[in-house]
Simulated assay, not measured.
Amino acid sequence: MSVARTVLGDVDPADLGVCDAHDHLFLRTPRLPGAELDDPAAAASTLGAFAAAGGGSLIQWTPYGLGRHAAGLAGLSRATGVHVVAATGLHQAVHYAPEVLAAVLPRLEDLFVAEVTDSIVGTGVRAGLIKVAASPAGLDAHSRRVFAAAATAHHATGAPIGVHLEPGTPVTDVLAALCGRGRVDPRHVVLGHLERYADPAAVRAALDAGTFLALDGPSARHPEASARLPRVLAAVIDGDGGDRLLLGADTTATGTGPGAAHLLTTLRPMLHARFGAECADAVFVTNPRRAYVLNRPAREGASHGSAEAGR
């Protein structure tokens, strides 16, 4: 049975509605001092504005150990009526203290599986996405370890895998490590940040592989990528990739960016005007229904209930 695993329980993917496919309500990392997303009021405002613009679901890509605020996500979802999907997984090594990595790396598979099938410890909330990341130079030993654990956890849980990419990371190497030799079906992989690549060959490689592509909305932190976004959107759609295209706001709760609602007040009308209503609906509605689902293993119990029961 295919479901979308939200912080309030499993829902029919059709119930996700209009989706912000890549965002962070909360994020805290020593790699980005002073840029913490750690304010529940700001997160509530972001979700509220998104809901008012017609938003139905938001995928939070914040993984293990980076201030997910998982315990608070259910309350935010319930208060705003927006479905929220939480992530397990692990970011690049630079985002963690060495002692954290030493403790968690040997048990990654068990951690990822437990956070999808049981709960994020102490929260009662289950993750619906496994987040991994490539390093700027490519795939280092840390990335390969995390990728391998994510593949194992995917096969155990059915959870999709979201991949944080850096400008210049060889997309073919990422695909080979994660999907090569039958590891993970590319249809269960979402590649993020491809609009940050100046080389169109990276986009072409992702399209040829059959993965989903989660592009970001305008970002004050990445102005060059924001300027490139319309060209990449056109390249994907003209390259017959419109059925795998997703859009997210990515890190909007700081108040410095246009926000999740901007996806629906500006980008969705732009897609509608330039590529038609069918394309706009695919990007925000029908594509996320296929990208962010998992096949619930029969051994999982029903004690977690459904989102409808939690609301």
Rank of each mutant, 00 (worst) to 15 (best):
L267F: 01
A149K: 00
P200C: 03
T254V: 03
R231E: 08
A159D: 02
E195A: 15
A149E: 00
F212C: 05
D243T: 14
H188T: 05
A249E: 09
V189F: 06
T211I: 04
L175C: 08
E166W: 06
M270F: 11
R181Q: 13
V190D: 00
L215M: 07
T254H: 15
D173L: 10
P200H: 04
F212E: 04
V163I: 08
A151F: 02
D238Q: 15
T169D: 00
D238H: 15
R196P: 00
P136I: 06
A273R: 15
T211D: 01
A141K: 15
R268P: 00
L264W: 11
A156E: 07
L271A: 01
V203C: 10
G162T: 06
H155G: 03
R228T: 05
H222E: 09
P136D: 06
A220R: 15
G182R: 06
C179D: 03
V232S: 07
R187M: 01
V146P: 02
F212L: 09
G217T: 10
E195L: 09
R244I: 02
R228G: 01
T157I: 05
G180Q: 08
H193G: 04
T252D: 10
G192P: 00
A148D: 13
R144K: 12
C179R: 06
A260Q: 09
A141G: 12
P167A: 14
L194K: 06
P136S: 09
H155C: 02
A234F: 08
G255M: 12
D173Q: 13
A156K: 11
L271I: 01
V189H: 05
R231H: 10
D199I: 10
A234E: 14
A176C: 08
D199Q: 13
L263I: 09
L165E: 02
L213A: 03
S226D: 04
V203G: 12
G192I: 09
L233N: 00
P223R: 12
T251A: 13
S219I: 06
P167S: 13
A177D: 04
V232L: 13
D208H: 15
R244F: 02
P186A: 08
T152N: 11
T266W: 07
L233P: 00
A225W: 08
L207G: 11
G192K: 14
R231L: 07
R145Y: 02
A159Q: 03
A137L: 08
C179M: 07
T211G: 02
R231T: 07
V189G: 03
L264S: 04
R145C: 03
T265H: 12
G210C: 04
H193F: 09
G162M: 07
A209G: 05
L267I: 12
G257N: 14
G168F: 05
A261Q: 13
L139R: 09
E224K: 14
A261T: 09
T254Y: 06
G138Y: 08
R181L: 00
G168E: 03
D173G: 04
A253S: 13
A220F: 07
T211P: 01
L246H: 05
L215Y: 03
L178K: 14
